[in-house]
Each structure stands twice: as C-alpha cells, then as structure tokens.
Amino acid sequence: EVTIKANLIFANGSTQTAEFKGTFEKATSEAYAYADTLKKDNGEYTVDVADKGYTLNAKFAG
C-alpha cells in the first residue's frame, strides 16, 4: 500500500491537502478523480508530479 498526497492549489490562493491510499494505480486514480469533482466550481487544473509520482500538485485555474 502506498499513499499519494494531493496538494490542491486554488485560484484564490487557498490550498487543501488530501491523501489517497491503496496500490499506486488506485491511489493515483482516486486523486485525479477527486480533482475532477472540484473542476465544476474551481475550473480546469494542471498537475505537476513530484516525489516520483507520490505527490501531485494540482493548480486550479479558477
């Protein structure tokens, strides 16, 4: 089991951190699915991958 950390950075400057656990593939998929649920209210996002894929920095356009 691994933990994927998602740093969510919103256009207004606020941030949120979420963690997803499971296999690498499952946890990564859940992190992206969570970011997708936030698109409606926060706009499209881009992701910078860090820490060999164990940290995802998602920046929302607003």
Rank of each mutant, 00 (worst) to 15 (best):
E1R: 08
E1K: 09
E1Y: 14
V2R: 03
V2W: 05
V2C: 11
V2T: 06
V2N: 03
T3Q: 04
T3H: 05
T3A: 05
T3D: 02
T3I: 13
T3L: 09
T3Y: 05
T3N: 05
I4Y: 01
I4H: 01
K5H: 10
K5A: 06
K5C: 11
K5W: 09
K5R: 13
K5M: 09
K5G: 03
K5E: 04
K5N: 06
K5T: 15
A6V: 15
A6G: 03
A6I: 15
A6R: 00
A6C: 15
A6H: 01
A6N: 03
N7M: 09
N7G: 01
N7I: 14
N7T: 09
N7Y: 13
N7E: 06
L8M: 13
L8Y: 15
L8W: 11
L8D: 00
L8R: 00
L8S: 03
I9T: 11
I9V: 10
I9K: 07
I9S: 08
I9Y: 13
I9G: 03
I9C: 11
F10G: 02
F10R: 01
F10M: 08
F10I: 03
F10N: 02
F10P: 00
F10W: 04
A11T: 08
A11Y: 09
A11K: 09
A11F: 09
A11H: 09
A11W: 09
A11M: 08
A11L: 07
N12D: 15
N12H: 06
N12P: 01
N12S: 08
N12M: 04
N12Q: 05
N12R: 00
N12V: 03
N12I: 03
G13E: 04
G13C: 09
G13V: 02
G13N: 06
G13Y: 04
G13D: 04
G13L: 05
S14K: 14
S14E: 13
S14P: 06
S14C: 15
S14N: 12
T15H: 10
T15P: 04
T15I: 14
Q16V: 13
Q16S: 11
Q16L: 14
Q16P: 00
Q16K: 11
Q16G: 09
T17P: 03
T17F: 11
T17M: 10
T17L: 10
T17W: 09
T17K: 10
A18F: 15
A18G: 04
A18S: 08
A18D: 04
A18H: 14
A18R: 15
E19G: 04
E19D: 07
E19M: 13
E19P: 01
E19N: 09
E19Y: 15
E19V: 14
E19F: 15
E19S: 11
F20W: 05
F20D: 01
F20A: 01
F20H: 00
F20N: 00
K21H: 14
K21V: 13
K21S: 10
K21I: 11
G22K: 00
G22D: 05
G22P: 00
T23W: 05
T23R: 06
T23L: 08
T23G: 06
T23K: 06
T23M: 06
T23H: 07
T23C: 06
F24H: 05
F24Q: 05
E25Q: 10
E25H: 09
E25S: 09
E25C: 13
E25A: 11
E25T: 09
E25L: 10
E25N: 09
E25K: 08
E25Y: 09
K26T: 12
K26E: 13
K26V: 11
K26A: 12
A27C: 06
A27N: 02
A27Q: 00
A27S: 06
A27T: 02
A27K: 00
A27W: 05
A27R: 00
T28Y: 11
T28C: 12
T28E: 05
T28H: 06
T28F: 09
T28K: 07
T28G: 02
T28P: 01
S29G: 09
S29N: 13
E30N: 10
E30V: 05
E30R: 07
E30I: 06
E30G: 05
E30T: 06
E30H: 07
E30Q: 12
E30A: 14
A31R: 00
A31H: 00
A31L: 08
A31Q: 00
A31F: 15
A31P: 00
Y32Q: 03
Y32K: 06
Y32C: 08
Y32A: 03
Y32H: 06
A33Q: 09
A33V: 06
A33T: 08
A33E: 09
A33S: 08
Y34P: 00
Y34C: 06
Y34A: 02
Y34E: 02
Y34M: 06
Y34S: 01
Y34F: 12
Y34K: 01
A35M: 15
A35T: 07
A35K: 00
A35F: 15
A35P: 01
A35H: 01
A35Y: 15
D36W: 00
D36Q: 07
D36N: 10
D36Y: 03
D36K: 04
T37A: 14
T37R: 12
T37M: 14
T37S: 15
T37W: 12
T37G: 12
L38P: 00
L38N: 05
L38K: 08
L38G: 04
L38D: 00
L38F: 15
L38A: 09
L38H: 14
L38R: 06
L38T: 02
L38M: 12
L38S: 04
K39A: 12
K39L: 07
K39E: 05
K39S: 10
K39C: 09
K39W: 04
K40P: 11
K40T: 11
K40M: 10
K40S: 10
K40Q: 11
K40G: 11
K40A: 13
K40I: 12
D41P: 04
D41T: 12
D41L: 13
D41C: 15
D41H: 11
D41I: 12
D41E: 14
D41F: 12
D41N: 10
D41K: 10
N42S: 07
N42M: 11
N42K: 10
N42P: 02
N42R: 10
N42Y: 15
N42A: 11
G43I: 01
G43N: 01
G43W: 03
G43S: 02
G43M: 02
E44K: 07
E44Y: 09
E44V: 09
E44I: 09
E44R: 07
E44T: 10
E44G: 08
Y45C: 04
Y45Q: 02
Y45H: 02
Y45I: 03
Y45W: 05
Y45E: 02
Y45K: 00
Y45A: 03
Y45N: 00
T46R: 09
T46D: 07
T46M: 09
T46Y: 09
T46E: 10
T46G: 04
T46N: 06
T46I: 11
V47A: 05
V47P: 03
V47L: 09
V47H: 03
V47R: 01
V47Q: 01
V47C: 06
V47I: 14
V47S: 05
V47E: 02
D48K: 10
D48N: 10
D48Y: 12
D48L: 12
D48H: 13
D48C: 15
D48T: 15
D48V: 14
D48W: 13
D48M: 12
V49L: 10
V49P: 05
V49T: 09
V49D: 04
A50D: 11
A50H: 10
A50L: 14
A50S: 12
A50C: 13
A50K: 11
A50F: 11
A50Q: 14
D51N: 08
D51L: 01
D51R: 00
D51V: 01
D51C: 07
K52P: 03
K52F: 14
K52H: 15
K52W: 12
K52I: 06
G53W: 01
G53S: 03
G53D: 06
G53N: 03
G53E: 04
Y54S: 05
Y54F: 14
Y54I: 06
Y54D: 04
Y54Q: 06
T55E: 06
T55L: 08
T55V: 09
T55N: 03
T55Y: 04
T55W: 04
T55M: 05
T55F: 04
L56S: 03
L56M: 07
L56Y: 02
L56T: 03
N57E: 07
N57L: 08
N57I: 14
N57G: 03
A58T: 09
A58R: 00
A58C: 15
K59G: 06
K59N: 12
K59I: 15
K59Q: 13
F60C: 04
F60K: 00
F60M: 01
F60G: 02
F60P: 04
F60T: 03
F60A: 02
A61M: 13
A61T: 13
A61W: 14
A61P: 08
A61D: 13
A61Q: 14
A61E: 14
A61C: 14
A61S: 14
A61K: 13
G62C: 10
G62R: 04
